[in-house]
Amino acid sequence: MKVIAVDIDNVLNNFSDTLAKSTFAFKDSYGLSLEEFDNYLDLVKHDVFAKSEFLTTKFSDFRHRIHEQCYPLAQANPDGVQFMNWLKANGWKIVICTKRNLRLTGECTKKWLLDNHIPYDYLITALNKIVFCKLWGVPYLIDDDLLNITYAERYGIQIYYPLMAKHSSVVSQTAKGFTRFEEIKQWIQE
C-alpha cells in the first residue's frame, strides 16, 4: 500500500504569510492588558514560544486563538492541491498530519480541506510526526519543520520539504527540498 503523510501549514497553504500580514484587534475577551496583547502578538507573528513549565498558559491560549483566526484565511497552494489530487488518483492513502489541535480546530480544518478540494483519508494531530510515521508505517512525509527534516532519515522516514528561508541550515543527506510539488512525483515513484 502506498501511504504518505502531508502537513498543512506552510506546505499546503501560506499560513505564515497570512499570519504576518493579518491584523488583529485588541479585545477584552483575550484577558490580557494591551501591553501583553502587543507583546504576545509579536511573539506569535515571529513564531516564538513563550517559555513555561506548563502546557497551557495565557500565551498558549492567545496563540491558539490567533492561529484559529488565520486557518480559514490561509490560501491553498494550487500546486499542492494538484499534487494531492494526483496522489489520490494514483491510489495513495493520504494522511494529513498536522500539529493543529484538531479537538479545537478539527471542523474548520476539515472545511478548509473540503473548500480547497484537497483529498485525504485520515486527519491526524501529531506533535512528533517522525514518531507517528514510524509507528504507523508511513514511509514518506512532506513537512516544513526543521526538526523533522533533520532527524527523519535516522528513523527510516523519507522527508520532502518546501524550500524556505528557514531551511538554509539544512544539512540532511536524504531530505529533499522542492520548489514545486511536481518534483516529489519522481522521488516517490523510484
Rank of each mutant, 00 (worst) to 15 (best):
Lys134Leu: 09
Asp47Phe: 15
Ile157Gly: 05
Gly31Ala: 08
Leu12Trp: 01
Ile149Ser: 08
Trp187Cys: 05
Val44Phe: 02
Ile4Asp: 07
Phe54Met: 08
Lys58Asn: 03
Tyr120Arg: 01
Ile159Asn: 06
Met1Arg: 10
Ala76Thr: 08
Ala5Gly: 14
Val6Tyr: 01
His117Asp: 15
Gly156Met: 12
Cys108Val: 10
Phe49Gln: 14
Phe132Val: 07
Phe54Lys: 13
Phe24Ser: 07
Tyr151Asn: 13
Val171Tyr: 08
Tyr161Cys: 05
Asp79Leu: 03
Phe24Met: 07
Ala5Asp: 04
Thr18Gly: 08
Arg63Pro: 00
Asp38Phe: 04
Asn14Gln: 01
Gly31Val: 11
Lys2Asn: 14
His67Asp: 12
Ile94Ala: 00
Pro139Ala: 04
Ile157Phe: 04
Leu34Ala: 11
Glu35Pro: 12
Arg154Thr: 12
Cys108Trp: 12
Gln69Val: 00
Glu190Phe: 09
Asp61Arg: 02
Leu73Met: 07
Arg65Cys: 00
Glu183Arg: 12
Leu102Ser: 06
Asp42His: 15
Asp9Tyr: 00
Leu41Ala: 06
Lys176Phe: 04
Ala50His: 09
Pro139Arg: 06
Phe181Thr: 03
Cys133Asn: 05
Leu55Glu: 02
Phe49Met: 12
Asp9Ile: 15
Ser168Tyr: 12
Glu190Cys: 13
Glu190Leu: 15
Phe49Arg: 10
His117Cys: 13
Arg180Pro: 11
Val3His: 11
Arg154Lys: 15
Ile4Cys: 13
Gly137Glu: 05
Glu107Phe: 01
Thr56Ala: 00
Leu141Met: 11
Leu55Ser: 07
Asn90Ile: 03
Tyr160Glu: 06
Val81Phe: 01
Met1Leu: 11
Asp47Ser: 14
Leu146Glu: 08
Asp38Trp: 04
Lys88Gln: 06
Asp7Pro: 12
Asn128Asp: 15
Thr150Met: 03
Thr174Asn: 12
Glu68Asn: 05
Gln173Asp: 14
Ile142Tyr: 02
Leu113Ile: 10
Asp61Pro: 02
Phe83His: 00
Arg180Thr: 11
Ile66Met: 03
Gly31Trp: 05
Asp121Ala: 04
Asn90Leu: 02
Lys27Ser: 05
Asn128Ala: 04
Asp143Trp: 04
Gly137Val: 02
Tyr40Gln: 02
Ile94Lys: 02
Cys133Val: 06
Asn90His: 13
Thr174Arg: 03
Ala5Asn: 09
Asn39Val: 02
Tyr122Gly: 10
Trp112Arg: 14
Glu35Met: 01
Tyr161Arg: 01
Ile184Leu: 13
Gly106Asp: 04
Lys21Cys: 05
